[in-house]
C-alpha cells in the first residue's frame, strides 16, 4: 500500500512540471477566452446584469424630467413584436430618432423565446433611442422564465404613470399563457387605475387586444366596460397580430390601434392633445 502510494507520488512529481505548463496553456488559455461572460447556466437563467434592469422606472423618471409641464400635446411612438427581428429593430431606432416624439411603447413580444439573452439583445439596441422607451409584456415574453426576466428588465407586468394629466396604463393581457384562468388581464386593477381623478385622459397599452382569441373571452366585456365607464379613454393600443388594424369594434367611440411587427418596418406616431388624437403610419 505504502509502496503504491510512493510510486504514485514519484510518477506524479515527474509529470507535474510538464502537466502544469500544459494545463495552464490549454485550459488556462481556453478559460481566458471564455471567462468573459460566456458562462451560461441555462438558456432560461435570469441573472440580468444591473445596467439592464428597471428600464420602465428609469424611462418614467426621464419622461417626467424631459417633458415640460406646459406641453399640452404628447407625441408617442407605438410599436411591438421585436421578437427575433434585431436587424429591423436597429433600423426602427434610426427612424424613431428622427421623430420629435416624447417616448416609445414596445408593446410586447419583445423576445421570441423568453430568453434573458434576447431581452438584453433588444435592450442593447433600444437603448440607442434618444428618447425613453417602455416595455409591455407579450405572450412570447412569458415563455420559459420570461416573466422573471421581464420583471427584472422592465418591472411589474401591470403598471401606470401620469404625464401632464395623461395616464398611461400598461396591462398584461396574455390570458392564454395563464391558461385563461380568469385573472389575466386583471380587470379589477384596471378599474382602480381608471377610477383615480389625478388625470384627465387615459391610454391603455397591452399586447393582445380584447377581440383576439388569446384574450380571455370571459374578460373581454369587463375590459370594454372598464374603458367605457371611465369616460376618459378613447384609445386602446395593441400589437400581437403582426398586422396593422384600426377599428372601433364596440360602437363606443373607443379606437383600437394594432401596430405591425418590427418585421413589417412600420410603427405608429400618435399625437395626443386633450381628448383628441391623431396618428400616422411611419414606414422605415
Amino acid at each position: 500500500m505504502k509502496d503504491i502510494f510512493i510510486k504514485g507520488l514519484i510518477s506524479y512529481n515527474t509529470s507535474t512540471c510538464m502537466f502544469f505548463k500544459l494545463f495552464i496553456i490549454i485550459v488556462g488559455g481556453g478559460m481566458l477566452v471564455v471567462s468573459c461572460s460566456l458562462f451560461e447556466y441555462h438558456p432560461y437563467e435570469t441573472n440580468v446584469s444591473d445596467k439592464n434592469r428597471n428600464v420602465n422606472a428609469k424611462a418614467i423618471e426621464r419622461i417626467l424630467s424631459s417633458v415640460p409641464p406646459s406641453k399640452d400635446t404628447l407625441v408617442i411612438i407605438h410599436t411591438g413584436d421585436s421578437q427575433r427581428f434585431y436587424d429591423e429593430v436597429e433600423d426602427f431606432v434610426k427612424s424613431a430618432n428622427k421623430q420629435n416624439a416624447d417616448f416609445v411603447f414596445l408593446a410586447g413580444d419583445i423576445s421570441d423565446f423568453g430568453l434573458k439573452d434576447e431581452f438584453e439583445w433588444i435592450h442593447e439596441i433600444m437603448r440607442k433611442l434618444k428618447i425613453p422607451y417602455l416595455g409591455v409584456i407579450g405572450n412570447h415574453d412569458l415563455s420559459g422564465n420570461g416573466e422573471t426576466v421581464f420583471k427584472k428588465v422592465y418591472g411589474p407586468l401591470n403598471s401606470s404613470f401620469i404625464v401632464n394629466r395623461f395616464k398611461f396604463i400598461l396591462l398584461n393581457t396574455n390570458s392564454r399563457e395563464y391558461r385563461f384562468n380568469g385573472r389575466v388581464p386583471d380587470i379589477h386593477w384596471l378599474e382602480e387605475q381608471l377610477d383615480d381623478d389625478d388625470f384627465d385622459r387615459a391610454i391603455v397599452v397591452s399586447h393582445i387586444s380584447p377581440f383576439d382569441g388569446s384574450f380571455d373571452r370571459k374578460l373581454e366585456q369587463g375590459y370594454v366596460t372598464a374603458l367605457e365607464n371611465s369616460g376618459k379613454v378613447n384609445l386602446s393600443l395593441h400589437a400581437h397580430q403582426h398586422k396593422f388594424n384600426d377599428t372601433i369594434p364596440y360602437h363606443d367611440n373607443i379606437r383600437y390601434l394594432i401596430s405591425t411587427a418590427m418585421q413589417e418596418r412600420m410603427y405608429l406616431l400618435i399625437k395626443l392633445y386633450g381628448d383628441k388624437y391623431s396618428y400616422e403610419k411611419i414606414y422605415y
Binding site: 427575433r84 427581428f85 434585431y86 436587424d87 436597429e90 423565446f113 430568453l115 439573452d117
Partner: peptide
Amino acid sequence: IKLASYTQNVHAL
C-alpha cells in the same frame, strides 16, 4: 434557438 436568432440577424447580433 440562439442560432436561429443569429442567422436571421447577422448585422445586429
